[in-house]
Write a protein that binds this DNA or RNA. Structure first.
Length: 260
DNA sequence: TCCCATGTTGCTAA
DNA sequence: GTTAGCAACATGGG
């Protein structure tokens, strides 16, 4: 269930272990996943994150993977050990192998040509958001602000936990029509987005249930959550009570008394 | 048994 | 065109 900070964590850790290494073999354990023999013997030139997706640049073709709801990556150094349950594929290198473990089987793996992969520009929320571009998207729309934040074309990498946290930090109600958000409030959202996502990257993500990083370590951001998963608890800002309601099908945590 | 889940896509209908 | 609501994908946990 990784969002931007979790994928960024995997991206950085993956760079440490596979950059410059050659793919020795690829094993597919799940018939839903396609096998690309072109990957064999190629050297890893770069590992990048685009939104919640990961790109492994093979110097020409680019492996694109997405973990969706329950996917995780696991670096296994000992080739002799059997892959854990729900392992869907394995990319093998001399020092170890990268396993994708995914109980719900929504994760994807595909091979694209490099030109195709780089053609579309994807903004990076960690590098800062273009306030004017977002305001332009927001103008006149009645869509709830949280739904816009979760729109991957507008905020690539944003996920449900951090959208809840960012709106709380900005004191904005998740149901507020996007077009009614003032420029000053947009500045708050942009600032909170950068602050919260960067902190979460430093914490190596949020381990609420099963998120683990590449080396099976838990993240630490779950200790800093102010509203997500805090239904019934006291609001840390105004002493109201945190509520949980559905917004476009997603559990949405907020404080009705101070998020207006 | 039912409801929940850190994601994405596609359909239908207002 | 926009938005809301669902269902689908598939599995496990409480």
């Amino acid at each position: 269930m990784p969002e931007l900070p979790e994928v960024e964590t995997l991206c950085r850790q993956l760079r440490q272990v596979i950059l410059g290494n050659q793919i020795r073999d690829v094993t597919i354990y799940d018939a839903k996943i396609a096998y690309f023999p072109e990957m064999i013997d190629r050297t890893i030139k770069d590992v990048r994150r685009r939104g919640k997706g990961l790109e492994i640049d093979l110097g020409g073709p680019v492996v694109h993977l997405h973990l969706r709801m329950s996917g995780r990556l696991f670096w296994q150094q000992d080739h002799v050990l059997p892959p854990p349950p729900h392992t869907r594929y394995s990319i093998e290198f001399a020092p170890g192998r990268m396993l994708c473990i995914d109980p719900r089987r929504f994760a994807t793996l595909d091979l694209r040509d490099g030109y195709e992969a780089e053609k579309t520009f994807v903004p990076d929320l960690l590098a800062g958001i273009d306030l004017d571009a977002v305001c332009l998207q927001a103008k006149g729309r009645r869509l709830p602000i949280k739904a816009l934040l979760l729109d991957q074309r507008v905020m690539p990498g944003m996920g449900n936990i951090y959208a809840c946290e960012i709106l709380f930090e900005s004191s904005i109600n998740p149901w507020r029509p996007t077009g009614d958000v003032t420029p000053a409030e947009w500045r708050k959202i942009v600032t909170a987005t950068a602050d919260i996502l960067k902190t979460a990257v430093t914490c190596r993500g949020t381990s609420i249930s099963d998120w683990r990083d590449l080396f099976s370590a838990k993240g630490e951001y779950q200790h800093q959550l102010k509203v997500y998963g805090q239904e019934g608890k006291t609001c840390p800002r105004c002493h109201g009570q945190i509520e949980r309601r559905k917004l476009s099908g997603r559990g949405t945590y907020y404080c009705p008394s101070c998020q207006k």
